[in-house]
Each structure stands twice: as structure tokens, then as C-alpha cells.
Computed example of a mutant assay.
Amino acid sequence: MEFSKKSKLLIVDDSAFMRKLISDFFEGNSYVEVIGTARNGKDAISKIQQLEPDVVTMDVEMPEMNGLEALKRIMEICPVPVIMLSSTTVSGAENTLSAMESGAVDFVAKPSGTISLDLHKIKEELVHKVKHAAKVPVSKLKRVEQAVKQPTKITNFSSIKRETISTNHKLFQHRSNKESSEINISKRNWSNTSKKIVLIGTSTGGPRALQEVITKLPKTIKAPILIVQHMPAGFTKSLADRLNQLSKIDVKEAEHGDILQDGKAYIAPGGSHLKIKKVNMNFQVVLDQTEPPRSGHRPAVDVLFENVSTFNDFDKIAVIMTGMGYDGSKGLKNLKENGNVIAIAESADTCIVYGMPKAAVETQLVDEVVDVDDIAQTIMKYLP
């Protein structure tokens, strides 16, 4: 990705100290310049209309109009990519997830509450996320906001809009369901009767994408689902609880020793790699805090994929959705080299950030490239 002219940043926080601290992070930055600050949500809306920033950082907890209320108004009247700054409390995590639903591109957890004197700990993360969020098209934000207002419940799995990878793996060709079903893309030994496991990896934009996918899966799904979403500890529990409330299947934050069950989704807790092990006839969750982060992530999609690739007791459906970076593409190679695997990547059209799926597609091992709305049906197509 090339960055030519500097992206314009507006900083929104009720604390003058925090506004100054965050501004200092971007002093001399080659890609981002701070063009203004705002002290609350109302001030932010006015400044966005006046200054037209490319990206906004916004505190969740502010007087007069908090970050959540402001975000909803911003998405209605002057959409712009927003990075939320959140506290790590339970209510902070829940508010952050609400913000993601309402169209925030991403969030950064403050290390120690509303006024974080040690904010420098998250400087690198914040600068990185702001730089990339500034390039997210406004059309993607509007799509998210509309999807929240008009959730779609799909019960008919026969109508599937698909994209298949052409022979050079660079051009995508739309085909009808009938045509695409006649194309054999590395499905040599696929059988709908053998045992299955579903693996999902995602990052930036993931909470909204997961909601789009997980809520459409039927309770009768004949497979367990393992999910890696790049998130810090404390946030994954709130994500699991929220998805569990909205979904037909059971969703939980994975715990060490959980026995994998069909119709249940297990989300890797922030700070732990998610793995499995075989105990007698069952498979159990293994949470690993000792293996270091991979490409800066723990949990990492690569670690999950690599671990599951060592078991031939089931066929695998691997799904890589929106996110920065390339986590998952290395693990996908391991999966494909060991056993039967169908790989699904989210299309560039619906990704908030087309990083992880793009890296997966570039391995030339992806079987299906589909919009996020169609991922659930595509998963179900390969299950008994």
C-alpha cells in the first residue's frame, strides 16, 4: 500500500492532556498529520464537517455526547473512518463492540483507564491503525452502518452468490450457482459425510464480519467452529457473549479443556493461542500463553491453522476474513498440505481491510472468494 499525501487526523477526547499526548504521537509522522482536536462528541461532529479529516480517533467515554452517540451521528451525516479509544473494563469492552457494530473501523485499548499516563505503551499500535484506517473507503463504513440497521437472516442456503478464482488467480469471474457448482477447485476428496471442523480467522473489521457470518449458521450445523479474532484480553469474552445472544448456535470464549461439540463456536481469548488436542475419542481446547505472539498476534490464525493441520480425523473448512496483514496465509499452506481442506476468503468488496484475505488468495490455495453476506451459506454447502 502506498501513502502519498499525508492523511488528516482529528483527535477527540475530553481530556486536554490526552489530546496533547496523542497529538505528540504523530509529530513528524510521514503519513499522518493532526489537523485539529475536539473535546466531546458534539464538538467532533462540528469539527469533522468543518475540517473534513481522513480519520478520527475518539474516546468512548466523554461528557455531553459520548463516543458511541457521536459515532452513530457521524456515520449518518458525515461518515469518516474512526478508531475508538476504549477502557479495558467490562462495560468498556461492551461499548467498544457496540462502536464496531455502528461503523468504527477499529479500536485501541487504553492501558490504564480514561487518563492513561502510560499511553506511550500503545503508541505504535495506534499510529499503525490510524495510518491504515485513513485509507478505508467511506462506502465500506456506510455498508456496515446499513447492515446494522437492516440485519438479514438467511434461511435458504440454495441461493449462493459466488466468485471463483480464475486460472491465473488474479482475475475473478462471477458465475451463477449452477455454473460454479460444476467447477472442481481442489475438492478432489471432499465428502459431505465425513467429520468436519470450521476454522475462522479475522482482524480489523472482524467483529462486524463475524456477526454477519455466525448469526446465519443454523443450530444443526454438523461441525465445531474455532475462531481467532485479533483482540486484547477482556474484549473476546464480550464478543463471545454478544454473538451468543444474537446467534442460533452456542458461542463462547474458549476455555482450556473445553470438549469440541458440533453447533458450538469457540473464540480464542485475547492473549492465548488457540489449539486442540485429542483425548480418547474427543478433541479438547488447548490455550497456550507460552508460545510467543506470531506476527505480533496472540492469538494468531497461523498457529490455529498449523495446529489443526496435524489432525486427520476431520476435513477442514478454513475461512479468512477482513483484517490487516497476512496472518493465516502461512497456516493455510500447512492445512492444504495435510488432508482435505476447503479455503474461503472474504472478497475485497466487503472487507473493511483487504489484507489477510488478499494474502490468502495470493497463495493460490483459496477455493472460494465470496462477500461476507454469503460466507455462511458457502460454509454450509460443504457440510453434511
Rank of each mutant, 00 (worst) to 15 (best):
T290A: 04
T202C: 15
I197T: 10
E61W: 05
V228W: 02
K219I: 11
F283G: 04
S329H: 03
A104E: 03
H120R: 05
H256W: 07
V341R: 02
F305H: 12
P299M: 06
A38H: 09
N312R: 06
N29H: 14
V60T: 08
N168K: 10
G263A: 06
K219F: 02
K72R: 15
D302N: 15
Y31S: 10
H169T: 12
Q289P: 00
A265E: 09
D327W: 09
T57C: 02
I342A: 09
A147K: 13
S238W: 13
S46H: 08
I83S: 12
L226F: 04
P207M: 13
I22H: 00
K333H: 09
Q50N: 12
D288R: 14
I11M: 08
E52D: 09
T167M: 13
M324F: 07
M84K: 03
D374I: 00
S186C: 01
D374C: 00
T202H: 01
I22P: 01
Y266F: 14
V55D: 07
E76T: 04
K316T: 12
I197V: 15
I276F: 14
G270M: 14
D106W: 10
G257K: 09
L335G: 15
A109M: 04
K129I: 06
G234Y: 09
D349H: 14
N280F: 05
V319T: 12
R242P: 05
V301Q: 06
E163N: 14
R208W: 00
S159A: 12
V90P: 00
A93Q: 13
